[in-house]
């Protein structure tokens, strides 16, 4: 019974990435979209909250914000909207941390 944790806010604006990461169970996946993609930038204070979790980032939102993939923490998957749909399908439910 795995869950997809959808986060859309910058970790430098509010606690949603932190709340999501501390609620996640081992099979769960976190998907960073919109302003949450900033959480995946390597060396950023927030990237430590992603350690030990399965994390994907929405590529179109990264590109829009000028973040090249080589700026990301190494174990983060970059996916497109089709990949987003696949994650919704492969997990049993979706939790949107709004």
């Amino acid at each position: 019974m795995s869950m997809l944790h959808l986060v859309n806010k910058s970790p430098y604006e509010n606690n949603n990435v932190s709340t999501a990461s501390s609620t996640m169970r081992s099979d769960d996946v976190m998907l960073l979209i919109e302003d949450a993609v900033y959480a995946a930038v390597k060396g950023g204070k927030a990237s430590t909250m992603l350690e030990g979790h399965k994390v994907s980032v929405l590529g179109p939102d990264l590109a829009a914000r000028g973040i090249a993939e080589d700026k990301l923490a190494s174990d983060v998957d970059v996916i497109d909207y089709a990949g987003f749909v696949d994650l919704v399908e492969s997990n049993d439910k979706v939790q949107s941390w709004l």
Binding site: N8, E34, P60, A82, V85, D86
Partner: peptide, 26 residues
Amino acid sequence: INEGPYQHQSADSAYFFAKAALDKGH
């Protein structure tokens, strides 16, 4: 969808997600 258009990206994200889901036959 909980937010109006333009102010937040949520309506855009939802739209592209919906389109991708339909493209995949969902």
